[in-house]
């Protein structure tokens, strides 16, 4: 596991040279009119991130959620977070995962790969099907991640 846990931090500091990728879930908050759909987005993003982290935790560090209120224009804060992560020297590859379409327009101004995956309503599905769906959804993302890593080798 490579998550925001003290034990993981120890492993990370020991084998840091191998863990060169950071995955940041971008999670919108809204306790007013879009409460439920916002929760759905966050849950979906989290499921995708968990699955990716489960399969790639030897190289991918899963960051805690980057939570924000849309009306605060969180783009600058995200940019400075990414700058901070890059400047730490730990991470060569930054991946961002979200279901919030807000970020789509900033895709090209962000250093890091943005995965925008619209949330599917999975709450009525049973555990097993849900896992199947997530696995299918994550597959193409793996390909994008591998491509990004490949580029890192070639360049």
């Amino acid at each position: 596991m490579m998550r925001w846990k003290t034990n993981d931090a120890d492993v990370f500091l020991k084998s840091g040279e191998y863990v060169d990728s950071l995955l940041i879930p971008l999670t919108p908050l809204d306790f007013k009119q879009n409460f439920k759909s916002t929760v759905t987005m966050g849950e979906y993003t989290e499921m995708l991130c968990t699955e990716i982290e489960r399969q790639l935790h030897g190289r991918m560090f899963l960051s805690p959620n980057f939570t924000y209120l849309k009306e605060h224009g969180p783009i600058e804060q995200l940019k400075s977070l990414i700058d901070h992560a890059t400047a730490s020297g730990h991470f060569k590859h930054i991946f961002l995962m979200t279901s919030d379409v807000y970020w789509k327009e900033f895709e090209h101004t962000i250093t890091g790969q943005l995965f925008w995956v619209p949330a599917l309503p999975l709450e009525s599905m049973d555990e097993k099907h849900r896992h199947e769906v997530i696995k299918e959804q994550v597959k193409p993302l793996f390909q994008l991640i591998f491509n990004e890593w490949q580029r890192g080798i070639n360049s």
Binding site: Y18, R54, Q55, L56, H57, G58, R59, F142
Partner: peptide
């Protein structure tokens, strides 16, 4: 190595092996 999930037969240059995409 570090606990990633290996896949079967996904590295075109080394067929019929388990391959770990991380390293």
């Amino acid at each position: 190595h570090l606990g990633c999930t290996v896949d079967w037969n996904t590295d075109p240059s080394h067929p019929n092996q388990f391959f770990c995409p991380c390293h």
